[in-house]
Computed example of a mutant assay.
Amino acid sequence: MRRIGILGGTFDPPHHGHMVMAEYVYNEMELDEIWFIPSHLPPHKQKAAVSSEERLQMVEQAVAGNNHFKVSSVELDRKGKSYTIDTMRELTRSNKEVKFYFIIGGDMVASLSQWHNIEELGKLVQFVGVTRPGYDWDGKIPVYHVEIPLLEISSSLIRERASVGKSIRYLVPDNVYQFIKEHRLYESD
């Protein structure tokens, strides 16, 4: 049985924090692959700053050159709110010989028991939480813990810096940096 990690998110834009998280979980959990799944409309966030197509292209750029990282457009293709339960129902139905590991940050683990249809979701996936300082673990749902180095990088920080003309180089993978510059993403008018 193949072991696949799922890393979902808005990826607005994808950054080195996402890549480090995925690489550490890939190694620590001895997974076969990590699938990055950009969300269409996350239920807990506002609309993304750039289009779904641009976010998908940035994630494809970010994972280029890493053979165990793949990109899935399953949530973008489905449209509407991107509930994890809907995605995992679809993925488990079409991938019977796969055990899925859903990767979440420490900030999300704290509210995991409040996720939409969490009981069913817990039967479809094994949760893997990456350690982040300042968040408590919710012991109601079983979660594997993987420690990663602390990188204080966020997509909102990157968007903010880009909007005022500050450098975002070295916060995002080089291909993503070039894509953002070429398409003038996140620049203020």
Rank of each mutant, 00 (worst) to 15 (best):
W35K: 04
E75Q: 03
Y177T: 02
F127S: 01
V172Q: 05
G129E: 02
G165K: 13
V176H: 05
P43E: 04
F36T: 03
V130G: 03
W137D: 04
V143L: 06
Q57K: 10
D77I: 01
R159G: 05
G165L: 14
Y83D: 07
G65V: 14
E53K: 09
I37M: 15
L7A: 11
H145T: 07
L112C: 05
G105L: 12
I103Q: 06
S111L: 10
R132Y: 02
P133E: 11
F102H: 09
L171T: 08
S73C: 07
I141H: 04
L56G: 03
S167G: 09
K47E: 12
W137I: 13
I37Q: 09
G8C: 08
E90M: 13
V74L: 09
T92A: 06
S72H: 06
K99H: 09
T92H: 10
D32I: 12
Q114I: 00
S154V: 08
I118S: 07
H15R: 10
S82C: 13
E30P: 01
V130M: 13
A162P: 00
D174G: 03
E23F: 00
R132F: 04
L157M: 14
D189I: 12
L112R: 01
G106F: 13
Q46F: 04
A62Y: 05
E54W: 01
I158F: 04
A49K: 07
Y101L: 11
E119T: 11
K45L: 03
G17T: 00
R78C: 11
D77K: 13
M88P: 07
S73T: 10
V146Y: 05
E60L: 10
G9S: 09
L171H: 10
Y186P: 00
D107V: 03
H16M: 06
S82F: 03
E119C: 05
A62F: 03
E147K: 12
H116P: 03
D174P: 01
E30K: 15
T92M: 09
R2P: 01
Y24A: 07
I6F: 06
M21Q: 10
T87D: 09
F127G: 00
M108K: 11
S82A: 11
V164W: 04
G106T: 08
L41K: 14
